[in-house]
């Protein structure tokens, strides 16, 4: 296990590919032999600071720590904390980091976890900040890809839906672009395209190919992975824009019939209507399994950042 003790994880770029590989490797071992790790974090406390609603990420982190024998504390509604009285993030962290050994923070404001990490004395993990980054979802996605396809190189991946505010897309595409031979099909309405700066970064700093599409059918026959995302109501300032765009892309069996037999349908969840329920039974639909694997990815990450391996 590579030593990541004391480090923060704010962006997937905080980890090099060797470090990601170490996290994947331990996560796979944890998945195969869960009971061996039941006491790994005994005496450790995870603080979950969720300033924005979350189901999967929060519970997945809590499950991950509990499965390693640790404890949890935290909040999931900032209106019940001193934050509602106007407390700054710096003040909150400077107090809470003495209550826990590791912290995960979700915040609607972009850059909030980076700010918090500047004041935290314990490892701080970004659990999603606005439309910016979601690095632990990326670790979850990479683990899913690795377990189903056996590789993370030379992948053809279609990202579909909200590529502008979709933080899971931003984190994953930036990470997959660091592996050789990636081709990305970007399927979105004009208004929800990948942010220009991220696109420019990918073009300048990787060998990936970027292909912009308006229709799913243009990409489906070619890709190894279809990564669907929800059009997120909470990211729009104007409800009329949300209503106009929310049904832009829906994956149904007719469209899926055009995809390769071994293609993966992934989704960070929650879904609304962008994947028809009829798809759930298709063996290519791995999104619920993906959510399950998120627990092992987060267990491995926390074990690395806490510097415990116990084996």
């Amino acid at each position: 296990m590579i030593d990541l003790r004391g480090r923060h994880l704010i962006s997937p770029n905080d980890l090099d590919l060797r470090e990601i590989s170490s996290i994947m490797s331990l996560a796979q071992s944890m998945q195969q032999n869960l009971s061996s790790y039941a006491s790994l974090c005994r005496g450790k406390i995870l603080a979950t600071l969720f300033y924005e609603p979350s189901t999967r990420t929060k519970l997945s982190f809590e499950s991950a720590m509990l499965r390693m024998g640790g404890n949890i504390l935290g909040f999931s509604d900032a209106s019940t904390t001193a934050v509602s009285k106007g407390e700054s993030i710096a003040d909150t962290i400077r107090v809470l980091d003495s209550y826990a050994d590791i912290v995960v923070m979700r915040h609607p404001k972009e850059g909030a976890p980076k700010l918090a990490a500047q004041y935290s004395r314990v490892p701080l993990i970004n659990g999603g900040d606005g439309g910016h980054q979601h690095p632990t979802q990326t670790l979850t996605d990479l683990l899913t890809i690795h377990m189903y396809l056996g590789r993370t190189t030379h992948l053809k991946v279609a990202f579909c839906g909200d590529l502008k505010y979709g933080r899971t897309v931003h984190s994953l595409i930036e990470t997959l672009a660091r592996y050789p031979g990636a081709t990305f099909y970007l399927i979105s309405p004009e208004e929800l395209r990948l942010p220009p700066r991220l696109k420019e970064h990918l073009e300048q700093h990787s060998d990936c190919a970027l292909i912009e599409c308006r229709r799913m059918e243009e990409a489906l026959p070619a890709v190894d992975i279809l990564y669907m995302t929800r059009i997120q109501k909470e990211r729009f300032f104007n409800e009329a824009d949300y209503l106009r765009l929310k049904n832009s892309y829906v994956l149904d069996s007719e469209k899926l019939a055009q995809a390769k037999a071994g293609m993966l349908v992934m989704h960070p969840l929650p879904r609304v209507n962008e994947i028809a329920y009829e798809i759930d039974a298709d063996p290519r639909a791995v999104y619920f399994r993906q959510a399950e694997l998120g627990v092992y990815a987060r267990m491995s990450l926390m074990a690395h950042l806490l510097g415990v391996d116990g084996l």
Partner: peptide, 30 residues
């Protein structure tokens, strides 16, 4: 949506992205 526009404690910090257009990248939200 950047944290620097809502948290009074943090001082906005930027790195030069393009001198010709005076474009700067935010340290926090990028």
């Amino acid at each position: 949506r950047c944290v620097t526009n809502s948290d009074a404690y943090v001082i906005p910090l930027f790195h030069l992205h393009d001198a010709r257009s005076l474009a700067y990248v935010c340290e926090y939200c990028e």
